[in-house]
Write a protein that binds this DNA or RNA. Structure first.
Length: 882
RNA sequence: GCCGGGAUGGCGGAACUGGCAGACGCAGCGGACUCAAAAUCCGCCGACCCUUGCGGUCAUGGGGGUUCGACCCCCCCUCCCGGCACCA
């Protein structure tokens, strides 16, 4: 136990002076004592049941991954949440403030490989260590509702939800191209790929593999996830924008182009180059094969001069099979695309393409468009095929220029278009403005673009070759992971019945304990015959268990519901209990989860609502994303060597000072620059408070209620006190600028110590002193709970500080009777006059004009105007002397 | 390229709705206490100028504008951080 082994050598010298010893602020002693008391009362921070007469308040910080060590980002996150929770308790709310562990995941397996510790043991040890750190910080969690996602009591409900989703077609299995991280040796969701690299391994390029995977149909909810963003007005605009971009809704149309029957094609000139459109002809025959194109600009379809297919388009494969030269060209294009994707720069790819030799018929006018393959066409967006309109699309323009493809202008600006000659028109290309008019577009000519978009989609639908269509960028959520340390997917593959879900009565499918972890050869569970071999519940025949586990983001998608009813063994939670607590009133965490966790949990909530187990549409009413903790200009990281450990700070300055500094050094939404000297400064401040209370607490202890006229000194102190109460109360309700709240408390204490001689002389009655000391302690409680409790007790208070009522702001006491009004002349400060706070305009004006410095500065010039802002300032405008 | 956020003393930051720029803290300087140190307490602390005063001028990334008055609003520009990006 690394306790007081390294105590200060200086302490010996002080031991002689018992008075000084007593007055010294020793956070280690105080905090150890209170920590012990709090831990012996597990009901201390317990929320009341739904029958509580108090209004409910659910405050939540994002649950950590149990790495074994808290870092400063955690401390900051929890300091914010804890201050809020304590404040809301003091405001009389029934507060739910829980904590848990996002305990599945790869690091446990890596640790197992490295030091031969079983993942479960490694994880549980880490949890114990981090819980100790949290308790050392004095965080007010209700541990009765602790959730640990790697325990069967929790993950069985992951399985249960999965089965419900499977029943409803929301969970399905398909073979598809998936992201594969060789270092993780598993598949990643789209959301876990950052710049073409693994989110955990920044340098590791993600490969594409074809695998059978389980998916959750988040796309079913794409529209609702998008629409409901507008309801989340308690969320940062930034996060909402990020989610909007991620969902990526595009409105457009799908149009079918039939491939021309090449064998029966009439002889045309320039057939082999594929650079120009072939005219419509009566004798052209269709092959029956269709190319479906998605476009947001169907209005420009008369300007289409080619089709562009993705290299992996199925039709391209077919064509390439028949034409070896095409096959090798396409392979080249595909390789370029893959390289760009892996470099994380799909946008920067240099466009290349190859003509397939085929033509497809534009259903609007019968023209035949050359069919090309382009390395910039992505198979997984839209239909993997586009119509190319060089005159009205930047990318198509660039491509057409390069390969000499035909261009056709079919859109002109509303006003100057008609007059322009062809040279001027070409100079505008590519012209992409949608507030424009169509030309050369058959029956649609002279329509506006938007009108044409609707009419053309309707036309296509009427004639059976297309329809209006909405496309999302968001893809279904692939949740299969070829790893051990996760929730087993409760599915079986029967030799005769095929895919069979595990019956609910057999849940949980337990994760076996004794397992050899390796990073090769697929899912580790596949090598555990007792696990993998099963009996089909349908036919009793031999079946193989699914050996992949779930993405750990499944665990964190609904954990906060479990907190409300964490020991329920019959259901994931009681619906009524959830209905009482949800939505979460305030969620606090890092912005790095803006897309991943926060979009998955919104999805999960909507699924649970449709399953009838919750009644809310959204999980989180208000979201707060705190800034990063940085040091020397960079995010703390081992590789940069700028990490500061919370343990070290706590050992040196105490938990109160460490927490308080993390709130004091910057507003919570901004990045925080960690400066150890600053922590020392906060610690010094707490020492001043401690000593002041120690010195005058005894006097305050026995004091009765204040009575009679207040002395001037008392008034001044109470004024400052109530100004501070107002400031902090307002900030908790709104801005959350805890840095200035703490500064305000410091000012109050400075005022108090400056008045110390008057207090010592007895010019401030004990009752007033007691009032001030009690209020100060209450104001301090959300930020420095250990010290606040210590002082609270010294003041003779026996009720718990946690539920003590927040001090009430008194307008009359806060009011200044004299205020200073700055006097400007021509906008420059020339004097300050003191007037009574309720002085009328006349009085203020007279005071300003009669001020010596003001008359001197005016120097007899003519006064043009006097601007008078009540209680704020006077500005005198004079005629400029020449 | 597009969308956010930001730039204020030596440093972190304050100024909430357009009204005394630099609260609060750190660092620094000077002093008290002490044999000494630590701890603590007190004072000074944006830059420049002079006639050293209850003085003046300049100053919130740069340039312009609106206003009696701009860190704050408008226009243009520079740099930093974050997100998105052939999304058809």
């Amino acid at each position: 136990m690394p306790t007081n082994q390294h105590s200060e050598p200086t302490e010996k010298a002080v031991t002689g002076d018992s008075q000084a010893q007593e007055m010294r602020y020793n956070p280690a002693d105080i905090e150890a004592r209170w920590q012990q008391r709090w831990e012996s009362q597990p009901e201390l921070y317990a929320a009341e049941p739904a029958t509580s007469a108090r209004p409910k308040y659910y405050v939540l910080e994002m649950l950590p991954y149990p790495s074994g060590q808290l870092h400063m980002g955690h401390v900051r996150n929890y300091a914010i949440g804890d201050a809020l929770a304590r404040y809301m308790w003091m405001q009389g709310y029934n507060v739910l403030h829980p904590m848990g562990w996002d305990a599945f995941g790869l690091p446990a397996e890596n640790a197992a490989l490295k030091n031969n510790t079983p993942p479960r043991q490694w994880t549980l040890n880490n949890i114990a260590a981090m819980k100790r750190q949290m308790n050392r910080l004095g965080l007010s969690y209700d541990w009765r509702n602790e959730v640990t996602t790697c325990l069967p009591e929790y993950y069985r409900w992951n399985q249960w939800f999965f089965l419900r989703m499977y029943e409803r077609g929301l969970a399905y299995r398909k073979k598809s191209k998936v992201n594969w991280c060789p270092q993780c040796a598993t598949v990643l969701a789209n959301e876990q790929v950052v710049n073409g690299c693994c989110w955990r391994h920044e340098e590791q390029i993600v490969e594409q593999r074809d695998l059978e995977q389980w998916f959750l149909r988040i796309t079913n909810y794409a529209q609702e996830l998008l629409d409901d963003l507008s309801k989340l007005d308690g969320w940062p605009e930034k996060v909402r924008t990020m989610q909007r971009n991620w969902i990526g809704r595009s409105e457009g149309a799908e149009i079918e182009f039939e491939l021309e029957d090449a064998a029966a094609a009439p002889e045309d000139e320039a057939r082999t180059k594929g650079t120009s459109v072939l005219p419509a002809r009566e004798d052209v025959k269709g092959s029956g094969k269709k190319i479906v194109v998605f476009t947001t600009r169907v209005d420009t379809i008369y300007g289409a001069t080619s089709l562009q297919l993705a290299p992996e388009h199925p039709l391209v494969k077919e064509m390439a099979a028949a034409t070896p030269s095409l096959a090798s060209a396409v392979a080249g294009l595909l390789e370029q695309q893959r390289a760009a994707r892996e470099a994380g720069d799909v946008g920067g790819i240099e466009k290349h393409g190859v003509f397939t030799g085929h033509y497809a018929i534009n259903p609007f006018n019968g023209e035949r468009l050359p069919v090309w393959v382009g390395n910039y066409i992505l198979l997984d967006y839209g239909t993997g095929a586009i119509m190319s309109v060089p005159a009205h699309d930047e990318r198509d323009y660039e491509f057409a220029k390069k390969y000499g493809l035909e261009m056709r202008i079919v859109v002109l600006p509303r006003h100057d278009g008609e007059a322009a000659d062809s040279g001027a028109r070409e100079a505008m290309l590519p012209f992409t403005e949608e507030n424009s008019l169509l030309i050369n577009s058959g029956e649609f000519s002279s329509m506006g673009c938007e009108e044409a978009q609707h009419k053309m989609a309707a036309h296509a639908e009427q004639h059976g070759f297309g329809k209006a269509k909405v496309v999302f960028r968001l893809k279904d959520w692939g949740i299969s992971r070829q790893r051990y340390w996760g929730t087993p997917i409760p599915m079986l593959y029967c030799e005769t019945c095929g895919i069979v879900p595990v019956p609910e009565s057999e849940l949980p499918v337990l994760l076996p304990d004794n397992i050899e972890i390796t990073q090769q050869g697929g899912s580790p569970l596949g090598r555990v015959p007792e696990f993998a071999n099963a009996v089909c519940p349908k036919c009793g025949g031999r079946a193989r268990r699914e050996t992949d586990t779930m993405d750990t983001f499944v665990d964190s998608s609904w954990y906060f519901y479990r907190y409300t009813d964490a020991r329920n063994s019959e259901a994931p939670f009681a619906t009524d209990t959830v209905a009482y607590w949800f939505p979460i009133d305030q969620y606090i965490g890092g912005v790095e989860h803006a897309i991943l966790h926060l979009i998955y949990s919104r999805f999960w909530t909507k699924v649970m609502r449709d399953l009838g187990v919750v009644r809310n549409d959204e999980p989180v009413a208000r979201l707060f994303t705190q800034g990063m903790v940085i040091r020397n200009g960079a995010k703390m990281s081992k590789s940069k060597g700028n990490v500061v450990s919370p343990d070290e700070m706590i050992a040196r300055y105490g938990a109160d000072a460490t927490r308080m500094y993390s709130l004091f050094a910057a507003p919570p939404d901004r990045d925080l620059d960690w400066q150890e000297d600053g922590v020392a400064g906060v610690s010094r401040f707490l020492g001043r408070v401690y000593r002041f209370a120690a010195k005058y607490g005894e006097r305050a202890k026995g004091a009765g209620a204040a009575s009679g006229e207040l002395t001037t000194e008392s008034q001044a102190l109470l004024r400052k006190l109530h100004q501070t109460i107002r400031k902090i109360t307002e900030d908790f309700a709104g801005r959350w600028h805890f840095n200035t709240c703490i500064a305000a408390i410091m000012e109050l204490v400075n005022t108090l110590t400056a008045a110390e001689s008057q207090i010592a002389e007895g010019r401030v009655p004990d009752a007033v002193l007691a009032d001030i000391l009690r209020s100060l302690t209450l104001l301090l409680a959300p930020f420095a709970p250990f010290l606040a409790c210590e002082i609270w007790e010294q003041l003779g208070e026996t009720s718990g500080l946690l539920r003590a009522p927040w001090p009430k702001f008194d307008e009359a006491l806060a009011r200044e009777d004299q205020i200073e009004i700055p006097v400007q002349i021509m906008g420059k400060l020339r004097a300050v006059v003191r007037v009574s706070a309720d002085a009328g305009e006349e009085t203020v004006r007279d005071a300003a004009l009669n001020d010596e410095k003001v008359t001197a500065a005016i120097a007899g010039r003519e006064i043009v105007r006097i601007v008078l802002v009540p209680r704020k300032l006077v500005n005198i405008v004079v005629k400029q002397s020449v």
